[in-house]
């Protein structure tokens, strides 16, 4: 059992987390941009992120968990619950956003956040979980591999 700092708390996102979560989503998208020019962020990233976060917090088909330290939001995990039209099992949890503030990394906070998210998904009937992240992000590749994930589809892109 991993021992997490007692100041760290995990909980569901609330509407008043919107500002903090918007910041984290913007940070995550800017981090993704570092890996591939095709992930360049839009100029209106902040407005877009705010709209996206507001919708996700209210959406019953989304799981949005936050991590806080001494009352400050320092991490998030957002997953979408999806129907798989052709495959079994049919209900999939897709982790779309996963971000921990730099100074809280390497302290097992991400691992615990993932564990809680998977628990939550199981309760909602999810039987398969997947994750989206930039192909060049080797830290994520290693993290998910350590958690038992393996690649099942590839998305390739080119600019036109």
């Amino acid at each position: 059992m991993v021992k997490i700092d007692s100041k760290i708390r995990f909980r569901d996102a609330l509407e008043n987390d919107t500002d903090s979560l918007t910041d984290l989503v913007v940070r995550l998208k800017r981090l993704n941009e570092e890996f591939d020019s095709m992930l360049k962020v839009r100029d209106d990233i902040r407005e877009q992120a705010r709209t996206y976060v507001s919708k996700a917090i209210k959406d019953k088909n989304c799981i949005v968990l936050v991590v806080e330290s001494e009352g400050k939001v320092i991490g998030l995990l957002k997953a979408d619950l999806r129907e798989r039209f052709f495959n079994e099992p049919a209900t999939e949890g897709r982790i779309i956003e996963f971000y921990i503030m730099p100074e809280f990394r390497k302290h097992e906070v991400g691992t615990e956040l993932m564990r809680l998210a998977l628990d939550k998904m199981k309760h909602k009937g999810v039987k398969i979980v997947s994750a989206e992240f930039p192909s060049q992000n080797k830290i994520s590749v290693e993290f998910y591999a350590k958690q038992g994930f393996r690649p099942i589809t590839n998305i390739h892109a080119k600019m036109l």
Binding site: R27, R30, L31, E34, M101, P102, E103
Partner: peptide, 13 residues
């Protein structure tokens, strides 16, 4: 400081 916006960029480069 750890919350500066370029921290992720620094972590990579």
């Amino acid at each position: 400081e750890p919350e500066r916006e370029d921290m992720d960029e620094l972590s990579l480069h």
